[in-house]
């Protein structure tokens, strides 16, 4: 029995060492996002609290903690409280399989990419539950929009993942990274990378696809009735999801923890730093797009997902498969 407790203790220790950096980096990433947004619009952005305003998010979080949590009288209380918890938990749970280097991963499971896909497809529930439980019109409309949007963009993300898996021959995330040792998948699968990036914008409800919280039409979408810490949890979960999508993009297309090139000054930099740099690069693109691009109309969003991305990624899938087949480049299975 003592052994089990010891193993359990070790796991808890590992999980804490995974979660704390993620929460801290989420706080930093919120600051970066606002900073980039400010710089694009020729403002300064948050620059008062701490050096360069780095502690702005912590100050905000402190404010949220001490604010009163208001639960609407007509709300379904259990579901209302559960919704932000679900969002936050799902956003953090997915990080268990993300490899930061060959050994630095909490759970190196066989079906890593399926796990990531499954968890990100569960993310809809936090939003639907929040929107429905608020028992108010704007949150409900926002939740419905968001559910339709996330479900439709997941389809093309799934097909893009299949594209990558065809070139790898394994569902393990570490194998996917190692398969890119010669050539990052961003080069042969560049169109898929673009579509993956845009779909992940839609999947995380970021501008230009932030229709679930379009403030001009829906006040704040599914978050309208939330206040205090519960709002902060939605908000943290959202940013953790964005980081997760960036990590997924860098693993699938940008070679994960592999260095830029396997030559001397570059390959002594430790693998986790490469991974972090790639995540940051993708996140900077996310932040820039938020600042630059105007919001889509809802029917345009749906058309883009179903009539352009889905057929295009299907055609590309067929092309990839036939290329790999005819040039005999299909990954070898060793039984």
């Amino acid at each position: 029995m003592i052994e089990y407790l010891e193993i359990l203790g070790q796991e808890v220790y590992k999980i804490i060492f995974l979660l704390v950096p993620i929460l801290v980096s989420v706080a930093m990433i919120v600051w970066l996002d606002r900073r980039v947004w400010g710089l694009v619009q020729k403002r300064k952005g948050p620059n008062v609290v701490g050096p360069f305003g780095l502690f702005q998010t912590l100050a905000d979080a402190l404010k949220y903690i001490f604010k009163e949590i208001i639960i609407p009288a007509s709300a379904n209380k259990v579901v209302f409280i559960l919704a932000p918890i679900v969002t936050m938990t799902l956003a953090l749970v997915a990080w268990a399989v993300i490899p930061m280097s060959e050994d630095l991963v909490l759970a190196n499971i066989n079906v890593g990419i399926l796990y990531l896909f499954a968890i990100s497809s569960l993310g809809v529930y936090g939003i639907i539950m929040g929107g429905w439980a608020s028992n108010s019109k704007y949150p409900f409309l926002g939740a419905i929009r968001s559910a339709a949007q996330m479900v439709s963009y997941e389809v093309s993300i799934g097909i893009i993942i299949i594209n990558v898996l065809l070139c790898v021959g394994s569902l393990n995330l570490n194998d996917i990274v190692i398969a890119q040792k010669e050539l990052w998948f961003v080069i042969p699968l560049f169109p898929m990378f673009v579509i993956f990036f845009i779909s992940s914008l839609a999947e995380t409800n970021r501008p230009p696809f932030d229709l679930p919280e379009a403030e001009a039409e829906l006040v704040a979408g599914y978050q309208t009735e939330y206040s205090g810490m519960m709002y902060a949890m939605f908000w943290l979960g959202e940013y953790a999801n964005i980081l997760l999508m960036c990590a997924m993009g860098s693993i699938l297309f940008l070679g994960g923890w592999l260095p830029l090139m396997d030559i001397y000054p570059l390959n002594i930099i430790p693998a986790p730093i490469w991974m972090i740099l790639k995540i940051l690069f993708l996140f900077l693109l996310f932040a820039l797009i938020k600042a630059i691009v105007p919001r889509y109309r809802y029917d345009q969003l749906m058309r883009l997902g179903w009539k352009i991305f889905l057929p295009f990624s299907l055609i590309y899938l067929v092309l990839t498969a036939s290329f790999l087949f005819y040039f005999d480049k299909l990954p070898k299975v060793n039984i």
């Binding site: 079906v111 499954a118 497809s121 639907i128 559910a147």
Partner: peptide, 26 residues
């Protein structure tokens, strides 16, 4: 059967149950 488990999550929880929820709410 990790593949079946994950597919169950993706297909049933991620898509079918969302539609159920949708219909019931509407």
């Amino acid at each position: 059967a990790e593949f079946l488990g994950m597919i169950l999550l993706i297909v049933y929880v991620g898509a079918v149950a969302v539609l159920f929820l949708f219909v019931v709410m509407m």
